[in-house]
């Protein structure tokens, strides 16, 4: 049984080692006795989103994101229908911003976005918001660890993914980050989010395998993934406590 994964904009939106999210997913699927069939493309023209069990998009430069967004807008209706139908997707870094109504660049140019959610994003060239992050979500007991690296503010996110314990939120007036729409998970966390958060990878695997007849999820602890998570969380918490003193 093959699980079909689409890695969209694998070159264009691959600024912080994001490709590893797909690699780790494939490894976890294989540990579950499943095969991963991965399609990688920098344009959605040649693929039908409906053919896939899981779609991933990572982060890019501000210019690359606009290019990717322009491409994805050609499949806006197909994308939104898939999301509404419960398709599992993960959008990390500034790919998250594509789900909203618009992205306005630092020079005031507004680009229409997918409009799946009501939020809007505005970029700035003044300051980059970068920092380590600890994030709580309502569907897993363990927090997420990671890093935010963005130059934008996102307002009016109605269904945020995280409450931030450490790190930058969508905007400065609330502690919420990212957004969730059905099984679409979106966050400004950059890089190999699934590598760093094995509990979330397990959650995603369960989600995309739930309809497979006769399949039973096996709990598997990967020592290095677990160790990386525990130590990063420890280091970040130490840091958080130190700055609170």
């Amino acid at each position: 049984m093959a699980i079909k994964i689409l890695h969209l904009y694998n070159n264009l939106m691959n600024l912080y080692g994001e490709y590893a999210n797909v690699s780790i997913l494939a490894r976890h699927l294989s540990q579950q006795g499943l095969e991963a069939e991965i399609t990688r493309t920098d344009s959605c023209s040649y693929v039908s989103l409906d053919d896939f069990d899981f779609i991933y998009i990572g982060s890019g430069t501000e210019a690359a994101q606009k290019k990717a967004l322009a491409d994805l807008m050609n499949k806006k209706d197909e994308f939104c229908a898939a999301a509404k139908g419960g398709k599992a997707m993960l959008l990390t870094g500034n790919a998250f911003e594509m789900l909203g109504k618009s992205v306005t660049d630092a020079y005031g140019k507004r680009c229409d976005a997918l409009g799946l959610c009501d939020f809007e994003t505005t970029e700035s060239y003044e300051k980059r918001l970068t920092g380590d992050a600890i994030c709580k979500c309502d569907f897993l007991t363990e927090p997420f660890v990671g890093f935010i690296n963005k130059c934008s503010t996102t307002t009016r996110t109605e269904n945020p993914l995280f409450t931030m314990q450490m790190g930058y939120a969508n905007n400065t007036s609330e502690p919420y980050e990212g957004c969730r729409f059905n099984n679409v998970f979106a966050t400004h966390l950059i890089g190999p989010v699934l590598v760093k958060n094995p509990h979330f990878t397990a959650y995603i695997i369960k989600l995309i395998t739930k309809d497979i007849k006769g399949f039973e999820y096996k709990e598997i602890v990967n020592q290095y993934e677990h160790g990386s998570y525990e130590i990063t969380l420890r280091e970040l918490r130490n840091r958080l406590n130190k700055s609170a003193d």
Partner: peptide, 11 residues
């Protein structure tokens, strides 16, 4: 500075 960011290992 402090960071626990290791994405660069994948690059």
């Amino acid at each position: 500075y402090f960071t626990g960011e290791t994405s660069w290992l994948w690059d």
